[in-house]
Amino acid sequence: MDEVKLARTKSVECGAQEVKTQMDLFNQILQLLDTKLNDNSIMVFQEELRLMQRSSYYLEIQRDDLLPTADQQQHTLHLTDSTVWSLIDQQRLQRAMTLANTQVRLLLALLGMLYQGIIRGCRELEAFINRYDQGLVDSDTAASMQQMLQQTHQYMNDFESRMTRNLGPLDLQNQLIPNTGNLPIPQLSASLAIKMPVIFDRFKSCTTSNTVHLCWEVAGQQSKEPNQQFEIHVKSLHPTIAEHDQFTKSTCQSYNIQVNNLIPDRYYQFSVKRVDAVNLVYALWIDTIILKTLDIPM
């Protein structure tokens, strides 16, 4: 009898412990869903991923053999430094551009996989909450969800760290300037730089019967950065035979432009992007807006 009572007591204790474990897991998941995985947080993850996918990425070359200036850690090499650029081996530079492009693509692919992992984990954790409320959770399900909870946390931490981490230097196999052994050569290093996407301001862009005033901004940019060049494309959506496949292209350094000599009561498609630079390694995003010119007043 004592052995039976002891076994029954252990069984009750194990059951109570299992209930407590499941309840603790339920509370952990519920807290995560209410805080870092609520609808607003998911939208933030999605927007951060979209910004990275729409950004422009550039190869930057720094001179490591000069002392840092007051406002930057290294001297970034600009195209105006023709003396140094003339020493750079073009084949090695092209390999560095290819390496940079590959690194960007891998980063974006990883961020996309992490985001999908977060969404998948969120859905499975929500399903667990529903099953728990219905009393349909057993020990195997709880163990599986414990692993899913840990994995989802890891996906979120990895996603956030990749979003905030500096893209860092490129691991080049060879110096960009070959060492001929005759004269000292500048010591160069290469890294990736990112610029946020250019987006039309839908509220400020407006039309008249024969003009369109376009305004745009850089996502997340609080002030307008000077000396930025943008490329504007204009295309009629319903052209006449004479206008078919014709479009205009212009560049400007401001964040707005007025397009003149348009036809009244006509739909036009406008696109904006940064002017391509020689050190651009990856950029797919071009923002597009469709506006209709006003009909001629009677």
Rank of each mutant, 00 (worst) to 15 (best):
L136P: 02
C206R: 15
D265L: 10
R131S: 10
N210R: 09
V272T: 03
D245P: 03
P186C: 04
V212K: 00
L176E: 02
M196I: 05
E124P: 02
L107R: 12
L294Y: 07
Q229K: 08
E60S: 10
D34V: 06
Q154A: 13
G15H: 06
I88C: 07
F230W: 03
V212M: 09
S250N: 08
T207A: 15
N261G: 04
I296W: 10
R54S: 15
Q22L: 12
N256M: 10
W216P: 01
S144Q: 09
H233K: 11
Q221V: 07
D287R: 09
Q246H: 08
N179P: 02
Q134I: 04
F159W: 05
Y132K: 00
N27L: 14
I61E: 01
L188Y: 01
Q187M: 09
Q73W: 12
F200W: 07
A16M: 15
Q94R: 08
V218A: 02
K273E: 07
Y282H: 03
P186S: 04
L107M: 09
N179S: 11
S56W: 01
L280S: 00
R131Q: 11
N38G: 05
F26Y: 12
P186N: 03
L33W: 03
L237E: 10
S11E: 13
L106S: 14
L167S: 02
I129D: 00
K10Y: 10
M23C: 08
N261I: 08
L111V: 07
W285V: 01
Q28Y: 06
P184E: 04
V84A: 03
M1I: 13
L93E: 01
H153L: 11
N227Y: 09
D140K: 07
I194C: 14
S191Y: 05
E217P: 01
S86N: 11
I241C: 08
I185H: 03
L114Y: 06
D201Y: 06
N256F: 10
Q91G: 15
I199Y: 03
T98S: 08
N38Q: 08
G168Q: 05
M298C: 12
N210T: 15
L183N: 06
F159S: 02
L79F: 10
A143S: 04
M23A: 07
G135M: 05
Y282I: 00
K20H: 15
D71V: 13
Q91A: 14
F200T: 05
K195V: 12
V272N: 00
P186E: 02
L149T: 01
I29W: 00
L25C: 04
R123Q: 15
N101E: 09
A193F: 06
L183G: 03
G121D: 01
D71G: 11
G121S: 05
D265F: 12
K224W: 06
D65M: 10
G181C: 12
T69A: 13
Y132M: 00
R105T: 13
S271V: 05
K249C: 14
S189D: 05
L262G: 04
L59P: 00
M156W: 05
L183A: 11
Q228E: 08
D287S: 13
Y132C: 00
L110D: 12
Y155E: 02
T152S: 05
Y58I: 04
D158L: 14
Q150T: 08
T35L: 07
I194K: 10
I177W: 04
A143K: 00
K204E: 10
R105D: 11
Q187P: 01
N210V: 07
V212F: 03
L108S: 09
I290N: 09
R165I: 05
